[in-house]
């Protein structure tokens, strides 16, 4: 059995140690806010936090997540209490199709947790996720708005 701590909840799962975390999250714990895009860690739609660090869960075996705190988009904010990043995302009307945006927000939250006032260069370096709709202009603006709010 693989024991995973997801959003503060312990799960004991009968899965292979090399199953990518993404598929354990989506299909074994039914947390489907984390998306599948490429399976090779390129697009970042599957970004979650492991002990606060953003990782690409499609290429991260569950065995490596044992004993660590896993956080998904579902733990970041709610309709009643959205995260500052989510408020900024709505204010700037960031999503188009929206499919990449849970991963984008997880990357942005991790960036702001370690670097509360990121420069454009910092944003370029941290936000390596892909958005096929091309919402980059607004993602950049929303990160800056969220950064101001988090001061």
């Amino acid at each position: 059995m693989i024991k995973l701590n997801v959003n503060g909840v312990e799960h004991s799962l009968d899965i292979e140690p090399d199953m990518p975390l993404l598929w354990a999250l989506r299909e074994e714990t039914a947390l489907r806010g984390t998306k599948f895009g490429c399976g090779i860690g390129m697009c970042g739609a599957c970004t979650v936090h492991i002990d606060g660090d953003p990782i690409r869960s499609c290429s991260y075996p569950v065995s490596a997540a044992v004993g660590k705190e896993i956080n998904t988009i579902e733990s970041i904010g709610t309709a009643d209490a959205p995260h500052a990043v989510q408020r900024a995302w709505i204010e700037h009307q960031v999503p188009q199709c929206g499919y990449c945006q849970s991963g984008m927000q997880m990357a942005a939250v991790a960036l702001l947790n370690t670097n509360p006032q990121p420069s454009d260069e910092d944003i370029d370096n941290a936000m390596t996720n892909l958005c096929r709709c091309g919402t980059y202009d607004r993602i950049r603006a929303a990160i800056k708005t969220a950064a101001k709010e988090l001061v």
Partner: peptide, 14 residues
């Protein structure tokens, strides 16, 4: 359609 997408409450086909 924006708020539900930001809050990851949107069900896609997948």
């Amino acid at each position: 359609d924006v708020p539900s997408k930001v809050l990851a409450n949107e069900d896609y086909g997948i």
